[in-house]
């Protein structure tokens, strides 16, 4: 069970408002983009960002000014998403979920079986829609880590905190996610008849 004590922020009204404007608002575009990539639905993304902000605001008293608010907010967003996502997909209960997460936390993701043969020029010629659908096609854990790293430029250490996994897992999961992304793009390219070599081992 989560301990949700309704802590009134130990701040005055104007302090809390100012903190919101200064620390949250600059990250809203990035949060919305992350939420949209995760849910693939504008209404769900809207709700997810709103819930994240309300939760963050409720615990704003525990936020230390000067620390990296973006990583803190992304961590809350990711936790909210996992809880909601689990509800919607009628997955395991929270306790079971945490057990699953922990049991995998110590292990690195396995090495990708192969690297797709994809050329930089092919990627440069691709349409934005193809790139976004290749991202959406990734399993959510891999999609998440690619967005955090390549789009939001979080460090490995920050991603480890946001995702609650060891740094070694961040590194191997990223490597695997990128191999999967390249594989998907290579398959699009082959379908469209871009010139690529066959997939090689």
């Amino acid at each position: 069970m989560s301990t949700e004590i309704d802590t009134a922020p130990a701040l005055t009204e104007s302090q809390a408002r100012a903190l919101f404007e200064k620390e949250f608002v600059p990250h809203l575009d990035a949060m919305y983009n992350f939420a949209l990539r995760l849910t693939n639905d504008e209404d769900d993304a809207h709700d997810l960002v709103q819930d994240t902000c309300m939760r963050a605001f409720r615990f704003i008293g525990s936020f230390e000014p000067g620390t990296y608010a973006k990583a803190w907010l992304f961590r809350i967003l990711k936790n909210n998403f996992i809880n909601d996502y689990r509800k919607k997909s009628r997955g395991p209960t929270k306790v079971e979920f945490e057990w699953v997460e922990q049991s995998f936390a110590g292990e690195d993701d396995p090495e990708p079986a192969f690297q797709a043969d994809l050329q930089a020029e092919t990627v440069n010629e691709m349409l934005g829609d193809e790139i976004t659908s290749a991202i959406q096609a990734l399993p959510v854990d891999f999609r998440m880590i690619i967005i955090l790293c390549d789009l939001e430029e979080f460090s490995y250490e920050e991603m480890a905190k946001i995702l609650n996994i060891p740094i070694g897992t961040v590194r191997s999961r990223l490597h695997r996610a990128r191999a999967m992304l390249k594989e998907t793009l290579a398959s699009y390219a082959m379908k469209k008849g871009y010139k690529t070599d066959m997939l090689s081992a």
């Binding site: 983009n33 949209l36 790139i131 976004t132 991202i135 690619i146 390549d150």
Partner: peptide, 13 residues
């Protein structure tokens, strides 16, 4: 790949 992601995966709040 990084460049393609940065230019394609944008959305504003």
């Amino acid at each position: 790949l990084r460049k393609a992601l940065k230019t394609s995966c944008h959305s504003k709040c």
